[in-house]
Amino acid sequence: MTDLKEKARILDRDGIRRALTRIAHEIIERNKGTEDLVLIGIRRRGVPLARRLAEKIREIEGSLVPVGILDITLYRDDLSSLHPHPVVRQTEVNFSVKGKKVILIDDVLFTGRTIRAALDAVIDLGRPKNIQLAALIDRGHRELPIRADYIGKNVPTSRRELVEVRLDETDGEDEVIIQEKS
């Protein structure tokens, strides 16, 4: 393990809340309401983010949007070089995605490989009307032609840096920090 040094805090609790509120508004505006809208959070921190967005959408629009959980492990493109294979968890999408507008939600958009895997995983569940992407942080360094439709904050980073999103549900606090490998 390389040692990590905390470098900067880019979002605090309020910052995360404001970013999600804005994204919720943008989703509603762009989709002209919530009809056929479903949210799918990518394990692990995309899941609480999806739940929070659903709650915000309910506050704004008064309607409940279904939330699903996606585990993309089985779709990773680096499995052939991994030993042992990573832990697989359940995908819990208890609704049909057929004809739906799917909003994929992840905490950090980086190389784009996770999203590539998630797109395949969603399409294997059924044929959605369209798929959109929301990410709390976009840190650049894309390796695939993928962009987010909704971004909480753009954070230019170097490859040596690590963006860590911490959430109450998973980590006991709400903040986004940048760490640097020393």
Partner: peptide, 18 residues
């Protein structure tokens, strides 16, 4: 399927930062 998945891992014995 679980067995095949868990035993068919190949290559390096480290996990990358996916």
């Amino acid at each position: 399927m679980a067995l095949l998945y868990l035993l068919a891992g190949g290559g390096d014995r480290h996990e990358n930062d996916y």
